[in-house]
């Protein structure tokens, strides 16, 4: 699957749950939303090897 995080792309072969992907990237479910193939998904969603995954940071402000 192709992962898009802050404009950088990563490729991961292994299928896994969204919660596991966030953990591997040291990201919190409180600070990032996960879009798979243009659709928002929950943490238990199983990612497939052909999925396009976008991680959206939600925290903003200064």
């Amino acid at each position: 699957m192709i992962i898009d995080l802050d404009g950088k792309t990563y490729e991961i072969e292994k299928s896994m749950e969204v919660s596991r992907l966030l953990k591997q990237l040291s990201l919190s479910r409180e600070t990032h939303l996960v879009i798979v193939n243009d659709r928002l998904v929950t943490e238990d969603h199983r990612l497939g090897k052909d999925d396009r995954v976008k991680l959206v940071r939600v925290v903003s402000g200064g």
């Binding site: 959206v56 939600v58 925290v59 402000g61 200064g62």
Partner: peptide, 30 residues
């Protein structure tokens, strides 16, 4: 919450600026 608002904007196709103000780097509120 901020997470709820980001989800609302995404679901509602609200085209917002994703980049942060360049002067907010290191802000205590973050």
């Amino acid at each position: 919450s901020e997470r709820e608002m980001a989800a609302y904007a995404l679901i509602s196709d609200i085209d917002y600026i994703y980049e942060e103000c360049p002067f907010s780097v290191g802000a205590k509120s973050l």
